[in-house]
Write a protein that binds this DNA or RNA. Structure first.
Length: 430
RNA sequence: GUGGCCGUAGCUCAGCUGGUAGAGCACAGGAUUGUGACUCCUGAGGUCGCGGGUUCAAGACCCGUCGGCCACCCCA
């Protein structure tokens, strides 16, 4: 019989990896909270229509990357390919956006049907924040400062860089789209197949083509910056002043357009050259018309999403990962002797009552004294706690240091041990 | 969806112009009857991704297929 494997592009995150994930998620969640953002949780499945209306009908995500299926009542459902649309739907549905500012964050799996490669899988994970109800550039600056602080706390300040652009208002963008189209159509024969296709679907995406010949052609193309209206220009200029004043360095990238339809004004990406082709770790921007598009009142909004898999890769290779991350066991309890397992469990519970923060692993399943000591060593524990025949008859326990501390090995009554353990463990961890 | 490279033990890999599978690590037991690490000995572990073909003979060659990695596309 053939074994069942995980679905392509959907990866297990194994015990060797989860401490890194927990660390990243904990640091980010604490940071978001410290800026006044509250967590929101929404379902993994939504009505298909939500994504068609928000992300855009002609985007690759909607056209060919969504996991879409009919529910048993034939309603079309979709595994969420991103979080922003879901967040807007949830916030709007529950009246969170009525005349008020909301600072929200979320995390969880997203699904896109793509060929897996480095930094990209079909189930991937994002953390993101969305802020509703603030139209000015100050909030754009705030979330960029927040992300910059996150990189700094993880020791990734040198590994990522910020790229920034403004798409202008929807009207600005429409005017520019036409001008770009006019230009590109004059040079149609020089466009590669992909760009020819995008001419019809999403011409702005031609701007960030990786084809050098296309980039060459674009040098003489009309620039989006020249099409920004007064309001858009003022918003962007003020944002840049705020970033300069706050010491955020960035690279203006007039070719940065982003793939989702709902963005306007500020767009940004934090990128790295250390992850291969998928170098975008965190990206976002302003989407002032999305709430209205989804049936709510006009509500300015800005947010970003960061890809946790990519952040994990970057953090492992370039971040400051704390020593001992993921080491759970302080004490390995060796139980050597017939019929002592029950007694060991009772003693262990007493120890846990007295010292709830201590990691205590009780050996189970028997085995020789020697093999238990080997397992104690392998567990990474600082100490072996031994209950054998001698200890049992003396009403005592033996504590043995495994990591070359001066402590050595001592046998004492369990009451005394509980008294002394906090001091002993503290001394050992220094 | 397209392209390149790759599938041999739990992991990392060797296996020559075809001749019936090996190493290191990890795991288990022992040397050392209640003391881990270092050392030494021993053991267990494989339908060589799967299916077909060529051949006296295929892990190796051919075809197909599935999977993995990387890149394109696209995106976090």
């Amino acid at each position: 019989m053939s074994t069942i494997r995980a679905v392509r592009g959907m990866n297990d995150i194994l015990p060797a990896q989860t401490p890194i994930w927990q660390r990243l998620e904990a640091v980010a969640a604490a940071l978001f909270g410290s800026y006044g953002y509250s967590e929101i949780r929404f379902p993994i499945v939504e009505q298909t229509e939500l994504f068609k209306r928000s992300i855009g009908e002609v985007t690759d995500i909607v056209e060919k990357e969504m996991y879409t299926f009919p529910d048993r009542n034939n309603e079309s459902l979709t595994l969420r390919p991103e979080g922003t649309a879901c967040c807007v739907r949830a916030a709007e549905q529950h009246g969170l956006l009525r005349n008020q500012v909301q600072r929200l964050w979320y995390q969880g799996p997203m699904f896109r049907y793509e060929r897996p490669q480095k930094g990209r899988q079909r189930q991937f994970h994002q953390m993101g924040i969305e802020c509703f109800g603030l139209a000015g550039p100050a909030i754009d600056a705030e979330i960029l400062l927040l992300t910059q602080r996150l990189w700094r706390e993880l020791g990734l300040g040198e590994a990522v860089g910020l790229e920034l652009n403004s798409l202008g208002s929807a009207v600005d963008r429409q005017r520019y789209r036409q001008a770009l189209l006019d230009y590109l159509q004059q040079h149609r024969e020089q466009l590669d197949d992909d760009s020819q296709r995008r001419l019809l679907t999403n011409p702005l995406r031609i701007l960030d083509s990786k084809n050098p010949a296309i980039q060459e052609l674009l040098v003489a193309a009309p620039s989006l910056q020249d099409f920004l209206g007064a309001e858009a220009r003022a918003h962007f200029d003020t944002l840049r002043q705020l970033l300069d004043a706050a010491g955020v360095t960035y690279r203006l990238n007039p070719r940065l357009v982003r793939g989702l339809d709902y963005y306007n004004h500020t767009v940004f990406e934090w990128t790295t050259d250390k992850l291969g082709a998928q170098g975008t770790v965190c990206a976002g921007g302003r989407y002032d018309s999305l709430v209205e598009q989804l049936g709510g009142a006009p509500t300015p909004a800005v947010g970003f999403a960061l890809g946790i898999e990519r952040l994990v890769l970057l953090y492992e290779a370039h971040g400051k990962v704390p020593d001992g991350l993921g080491e759970l066991v302080d004490i390995y309890f060796v139980v050597a002797g017939d019929n002592l397992e029950g007694q060991a469990l009772v003693v262990a519970e007493v120890l846990r009552d007295a010292l709830p923060s201590v990691g205590l692993l009780v050996h189970s399943g028997g085995g020789s004294f020697k093999s238990q000591m080997k397992k104690a060593d392998k567990s990474g524990a600082s100490f072996a706690l031994i209950l054998g025949e001698d200890e049992a008859s003396a009403g005592a326990l033996t504590l043995k240091a495994l990591r070359g501390q001066a402590f050595g090995q001592q046998t004492m009554a369990s009451d005394e041990l509980i008294q002394l353990l906090p001091t002993i463990l503290a001394a050992a961890s220094n």
